[in-house]
Structures are given as structure tokens and as C-alpha cells.
Amino acid sequence: MSDGNHGFGGNRGMRDASIVNTAGRGTIDGTRRSGPVRPGPEAAPFLAARDMRGGYGKADILNGCTITVDRGQIAVIVGPNGAGKSTAMKAIFGMLDLREGSVQLDGQDISALNPQDRVRAGMGFVPQTSNVFPSMTVEENLQMGAYIREDDFRDTMDQVYALFPAVAAKRRQAAGELSGGQRQQVAVGRALMTRPKLLMLDEPTAGVSPIVMDELFDRIIEIARTGISILMVEQNARQALEIADVGYVLVQGANRYTDTGAALLANPEVRRTFLGG
């Protein structure tokens, strides 16, 4: 961490492997406890994150950003670098303290829940990087995805393997040894193991080839057809908006355009400013 005030004057560039282990360190405060869940207003969309303001430290990154997703919809957030796309995602998932705004899921106001409890409430999250357990096998990765489930999850695992046959063949292999695209599939599979009602993907196609990207988008459409809502942040805006039921264009932490994916693709201003012509 770059903050120089952590304990006796920062770590002073220390890289002594015999006393500290920096691999796999977390960034989320796991000790925070959840607050109460209250019923939200009737007739809200399935996911409704409204008027979110907040950021890391003093400066706000989100300035009144609103994201809603209906059941079974694919929602895509696009926008320029530094627009707060991933931050909005993290805020919805409770990894960021909001100064203002609320998050509702399935009619419940879950603004006070910590990330662990949001998973239990029905959210699944696939981070952009470090999204598998590298030293564990594919099968163990999926088992960890199902950690909170007390029931028999073998059928869910079979569904995931059916969805991603390539990783099914490598179920005994360590996830860290897989290719980038396969690792991404394991990551999505892991998140699906909780049977989430809302699956959130942070730039799932970052760093994979176009062929792998197309295949991954096909799988995401398949997942949405089973009734799971999808919220995803994408750099490959054009391709993502093609499969989006609803698209959000964020600029400086606020909504600039909100429309169906097709409409945004057709909007000449959006095309010119955000999609490169």
C-alpha cells in the first residue's frame, strides 16, 4: 500500500520475503459488520442502486450515479477511463463506503450489508483480475464458490461444466495453470456456484482474444436466459452494447446516457464520443 502512514512510517520499500507475504493480500475490510436490511419501496427494479456518491478518501469518484437492472436483463456500463465504472460496481457490491444513495436488491434495501452478506443476499461478483484461487484445482475453485451453500450443489457444478466444457476437462488442474480465457471461465463459474440472482462482471474480456471474447459473451447471454440478471463493466463497449438490454454511459461518476444497448449504438453522439465513430 502506498499510504505512508501505515504503522511505523510505511513499509519503507521492504521486500523481505522471509518475513512478509504480499501475494494474495486483500483490499476489502473483512472485519466490517453488516447493518440491518429494510424493505425497500414497492415496484422497484430488481437491482436499484440510486444516487450513489462516494469514493476513496476525500474526493468523490461517484457523483450521483444510478444503475438499475431488471430480472433476466443484461446491463452494461461503459464510459471513458476514470469515469468510475468499476467504482460503481464496487459500490453496488458494498466494497466502498457510500456517502449518499442506496442499493436495493429484490425489494430489500441492502445498503448496510458488507460484501460477504451481499453474496448471501444473492449477488455474485467476478473481479477483473485475481479472480480465481490459483493454487487450487478448478473443481476446488467451484467448491469455494459454493461455500455458503449448505445443500447439495453437484447439479449446479454440472451446469457450470456444461456451460464451460473446456474447463470441465481440466477440473483436476490448478486454476493458475490455465490460459487467460479458461481462467475467466472458471471465475464466472465460481460466481455462478452460489446461484446468484444478480451476476456482476468487472471487465470480463480484459486481455483475452476476440474469439474468446465472443464465446464469453455467448455464455453470458445463455446465463441471462436462465433468469439471472447480469451487470457488467466493459472496455469493449461496442461488442458489449450489442448484447445489452440496457446500457449506461458514465462520465465523471454520473450518468450521461441511459438507453437500450441498440439505441445507444444507434445514437450518433454516443458513437462519436465513446465508441470511436
Binding site: R25, G26, Q116, Y147, R190, T194
Partner: peptide, 12 residues
């Protein structure tokens, strides 16, 4: 392996 992901999997 991965603290954050463990948390996101519901591991306390």
C-alpha cells in the same frame, strides 16, 4: 490464495 475472492465467496 486470494483474500478478496475468498471474501466474495462468502468465506468469513
Amino acid at each position: 490464495d486470494n483474500e478478496d475472492l475468498a471474501l466474495l465467496s462468502g468465506i468469513d
